[in-house]
Each structure stands twice: as structure tokens, then as C-alpha cells.
Simulated scan of single mutants.
Amino acid sequence: MVECATITVLIAFFVVTIITYWLLEFHYFMRILFCYLHSRFVKKKLDILDTSMYSSVCLTTDIDILLFHMNNARYLREVDFARTDFYNRTGLWQKIREKGGLVYQGGTSIRYRRFIRLFSLYHITSRIVYWDQNSIYMEHRFITKRDNFVRAIVYGKQKVIKCNVEEVITELMKTPATKKATEVRQKPECPSEIRLWIESTNVSSNKLRENVV
């Protein structure tokens, strides 16, 4: 009876695992959870204008049909982990939630420069390059460790609702996590590539509005 019960439990566990993987990309959610816990409770804190670094490796689950380099779509998924790391280590996520706000992805621009080959070690640097009242603009660089070459650059626009981004980041700049409180930090000028990207998205939005019947 004990053996039958054990076999039944194992079969049930196996079936539930298969169904879970079929319905959800289970390892993605587990990585997000691990990244959240590791960045929140293990890795050192960063100031809001610092650059974070998230390390990873190109595995067989990341490659495309050519079977030797990272799938283009995987870059954006990896940015999810890097962004989670940055938001937690700088306290940005906690500050936004403290004010009752929410964040969602408003746009992404990516430039691929060279392949990230199978089993290559790389890291993603993340930093805020600009912000306004409603959005945060971030830059993510994929850099291979063996040659320190920037393989891809991603710009992301995170829309923040129900709170003012200017207030959130100003408060975080006034309460530095690592630097001396007397250090003067200012809002950076909008980089030319971000300014042109904003103009491009505005043109696209206007055209879409014109086509609405």
C-alpha cells in the first residue's frame, strides 16, 4: 500500500509538473522570483543614478534556429531580469509602490551589433538615462565577458501611472543608499538618441490617432 501511494504521488507530481510547464513558462517565473529575492536581500544597494550589472549565460534554451547564437527575442526577456535587479537594488520599485504607483513597458528600441554565441558569458548593465513626469528611460547594454564588447543596446521606456516620476526620483536622489549625502546629483540632460526616439514615437502615435475612425 505504501509503495502504491508513493507511486501515485510521484505520478501526480509528474503530471502537475508537465501541465505547469505546458501552461506557463515555469522557469521564467522561477528566474524572476530568484532575481527578485537575490537583488532585494543579497546584492548590495545602489543609488538611483548608479549602473547595475546582471550576469547571465547563453544556454541551449536561448538559441535560434541557426543553433549557435542567442535568439533575438531572448534579449528582451533577459532585460526583464536586469530591470528587476535594478529596480530592487535602487529602491525604485519600492518607492513607486509606496506612492501607490504602477509601472508598465511603454516602448523598447534595440540595436543588435554582434551575436552572443552559445555558452557565452555576458552581463547586462542597466542605468536610467532620462525621465519626465510620466516615464523612465533606461539603457541596457549586453557585454560579453571574454572581450568586453557591447553586443546589443536596448533602450526602454517605462510608463509610471498613479504617481509622479519626478517626485519619486527626486526623493531617491535625496536619500542616497551608498554615496555621501552632501554629494550634489542632478537630473541628466536628455541624450540625443532618446530625444530622437521620443520624437519618433510621437510621430507614430499621431499617425495612429489619425487612422482611428
Score class of each variant (00 low, 15 high):
163 C>V: 08
7 I>W: 13
37 L>N: 09
54 Y>C: 06
61 T>Y: 10
48 I>Q: 04
178 T>Y: 03
82 A>S: 12
102 L>W: 10
8 T>G: 03
58 C>I: 09
28 Y>L: 10
16 V>I: 06
212 V>Q: 08
110 I>Y: 02
68 F>K: 14
35 C>P: 07
199 E>W: 13
180 K>P: 05
164 N>C: 13
1 M>Q: 06
131 W>F: 13
134 N>Y: 05
118 L>R: 02
26 F>G: 04
88 N>P: 04
155 Y>V: 12
41 F>H: 10
78 E>H: 08
82 A>M: 05
41 F>L: 08
53 M>E: 11
83 R>L: 05
134 N>Q: 08
136 I>G: 00
197 W>H: 01
139 E>F: 03
101 G>T: 11
51 T>H: 01
35 C>D: 13
111 R>W: 04
133 Q>I: 04
63 I>G: 05
119 F>N: 02
24 L>A: 01
192 S>R: 08
11 I>K: 12
81 F>L: 15
37 L>I: 11
190 C>K: 07
182 T>R: 03
162 K>A: 15
79 V>C: 14
97 R>K: 09
213 V>N: 14
76 L>I: 14
78 E>I: 02
174 K>W: 01
74 R>T: 10
177 A>T: 04
170 T>P: 03
94 Q>F: 13
183 E>P: 01
24 L>N: 02
79 V>F: 00
130 Y>G: 08
180 K>W: 07
105 Q>G: 08
37 L>D: 10
172 L>A: 05
164 N>V: 14
144 T>K: 15
136 I>N: 00
17 T>H: 12
111 R>D: 11
137 Y>M: 07
96 I>V: 11
133 Q>P: 02
68 F>A: 10
79 V>G: 02
70 M>C: 07
154 V>G: 06
53 M>D: 08
168 V>H: 04
16 V>D: 00
23 L>Q: 12
183 E>R: 11
166 E>A: 11
28 Y>K: 07
8 T>W: 04
147 D>Q: 07
198 I>H: 02
28 Y>G: 03
50 D>S: 08
169 I>C: 06
67 L>F: 12
162 K>E: 15
143 I>P: 03
126 S>T: 12
87 Y>D: 06
31 R>T: 15
119 F>K: 00
110 I>V: 14
96 I>C: 04
76 L>V: 13
147 D>V: 05
131 W>L: 03
208 L>N: 08
181 A>Y: 10
138 M>I: 01
5 A>I: 09
105 Q>R: 14
117 R>Y: 12
43 K>W: 05
40 R>D: 10
18 I>T: 04
110 I>R: 01
52 S>A: 13
162 K>L: 15
21 Y>S: 09
77 R>M: 15
153 I>T: 11
98 E>F: 10
187 K>G: 00
146 R>M: 04
197 W>T: 00
32 I>T: 07
154 V>D: 06
161 I>L: 08
23 L>C: 15
122 Y>G: 00
81 F>A: 05
5 A>F: 10
33 L>F: 15
145 K>D: 15
84 T>R: 03
42 V>M: 07
8 T>I: 09
114 R>I: 02
177 A>H: 08
65 I>G: 11
53 M>F: 06
104 Y>M: 10
1 M>A: 12
14 F>H: 00
190 C>Q: 11
99 K>Y: 13
22 W>V: 07
47 D>A: 12
201 T>N: 14
25 E>M: 08
